[in-house]
Amino acid sequence: MKLQQYLGGLEGLNDPIDFDTRVFAEPWEKRIFAIHVSMMGLSNHLEGIQDIPSNFDSKYTWADLRERAESMHPFDYFKFRYYEKWVGGVADFLIKGGYINEEEWDAKTAVYLNNADEQLPSVSEPAIDHQVIEYLRKGDSLYRESDRKPQFSAGETVLVRNNHVMLHTRLPGFVRSQKGVIEIVYEGNYTYPNSTGTDGIGEPMPVYCVRFDPKDIWGEHVESKSMIYVDIYEAYMDKLAQ
């Protein structure tokens, strides 16, 4: 397990929450956000991408950034602000993919540290810009037509599995090994961009909205009259033993 996958319900983070309504805290945060989005928009799994004149030739999706956020040392995860984590995640992907290396990144950083007014290189490529905005408009749906039929039905009580996670999961820790009631069986199947290995998702499969009573999870002392709804892939669920 990784702490980042178990944040929901975690005790001890009891400082008042900073009700900071800003989306970005610093101007540079906008730019790392947009770099990440541009890379997702140039991912080599997208339709028609072969015609776009970019040297990026990797599959790059949310899953790659999430894997990296969940792989961080938990102390660093809490220490760094949201987009600081993105800088590390995006750069790690580019370095491991051979697109950039640490030395040239350090050297270029030194240039801009010495002179913040130094301009970015100017290379226009409208086809890249168009592709990235088209990606934003079209999306990259995880929905798949498939013959795989749901094994559970609405109203059924199910047991959430606790599969071993090596890297990344879409199952929040607080519902693991808990019982929940299926609220909605979503139509169709949903894939995940990367296989999560022993965790179990990646192939198209049904997804359910499952309702949990917080009293079952944390005990009778928790607040009254509240319910939690979590969307859960079928690979994370078991039939309840009779």
């Binding site: 995006v90 580019l94 030194a110 290189p121 890249i128 810009d129």
Partner: peptide, 30 residues
């Protein structure tokens, strides 16, 4: 913050130089 700003600007510059993104892509997304 100055360090992060330089780090991100360096990343963007390298991606432009290497023909991965264009110099307008980031501004268009924003």
């Amino acid at each position: 913050e100055m360090f992060s700003a330089a780090r991100v600007k360096a990343l963007e510059a390298l991606l432009i130089e290497k023909g991965i993104i264009s110099s307008e892509a980031v501004d268009k997304v924003i």
